[in-house]
């Protein structure tokens, strides 16, 4: 397991940055109910981490018992679709854009499936399930419009958390139905701190300078920063201050 996964915070309050926002999110769950969310922010800013923390806050550690689910759909034109969803007992996560232009069918079917089945044991759990839809900004317009109707219709049984890089391609109708939560990328200082912390957890001696360089080179993308650190460690340990920071090939090529 990568360090990025290994040291990922699991609770809202243990998040390393945007603490205020984390507190707000925690308060949001206190009432036991919340509206649809639209979480957006650049890659590597911690969107999914926050979503998972939120779900854990809602349902407890049971959300971390995840399983893969393969779902099959048939389009009206008789084309067979297959999509893999990750689900726990309390939520399901799909990326409808995996099936390209047929994402509308996925959206409709999955949300209906989830929303139409009521939770039986109301005492133990929340009365709603959560559907996490990722890559909302690459959804087709059709799918987004399908989403807006189902969002309202099944609000009693399900909450939808949308996850997007940018909301510019999300239709306003959806934006207005959601509580938009922006997750900005951590600053370089924060990234540096996290890198140092991680190194400490891993019993490594990371020079501050190198941490800074990595933080700078990875463009405030925390995931990449941690992966870079790990790669640096694999390539050369003990660290030296001016060691070569690996870059992905595509970036060199680009």
């Amino acid at each position: 397991m990568f360090w990025a996964d290994k040291h990922r915070p699991k609770e809202l309050l243990s998040l390393d940055y945007h603490i205020e926002q984390a507190v707000d999110l925690k308060n949001l769950t206190k009432d036991g109910d919340f509206s649809h969310l639209l979480v957006y922010g650049p890659s590597g800013a911690g969107k999914k981490t926050r979503i998972m923390c939120l779900l854990r806050e809602l349902y407890g550690p049971g959300v971390e018992r995840l399983k893969m689910e393969t779902m099959n759909f048939t389009t009206p034109s008789n084309k067979k679709l297959e999509i893999t969803a990750v689900s726990s007992n309390y939520h399901i996560e799909v990326n409808p854009s995996d099936v390209g232009m047929y994402d509308r069918i996925v959206i409709m079917n999955i949300i209906k499936n989830v929303a139409q089945s009521q939770q039986l044991n109301v005492n133990a759990q929340r009365e709603f399930k959560v559907v996490v839809v990722t890559d909302v900004d690459s959804l087709t317009r059709d799918a987004q419009h399908a989403l807006r109707r189902t969002m309202e219709k099944y609000i009693s049984n399900c909450r939808i958390i949308l996850c997007a890089k940018s909301i510019s391609r999300v239709i306003p109708a959806i934006k207005s139905r959601c509580l938009c939560i922006r997750v900005p990328a951590p600053t370089e200082e924060v990234v540096t701190d996290i890198l140092l912390n991680t190194a400490k957890k891993e019993d490594l001696n990371l020079p501050l300078e190198l941490a800074k360089r990595i933080a700078h080179a990875t463009n405030r993308n925390l995931r990449r920063a941690l992966l870079t650190l790990e790669t640096c460690k694999v390539q050369q340990y003990p660290f030296s201050e001016n060691q070569k920071i690996p870059e992905p090939d595509w970036e060199i090529f680009y």
């Binding site: 990922r8 893969m68 990750v86 790669t231 694999v234 690996p246 992905p248």
Partner: peptide
Amino acid sequence: PSVRIYCQTLSLILDMLPFLMLIITPP
């Protein structure tokens, strides 16, 4: 699943896999 939930296709390709390749080929 626990890993997968955190990686979307694009970030997997752009951010993770290049480093993954380096990490799994230690000297």
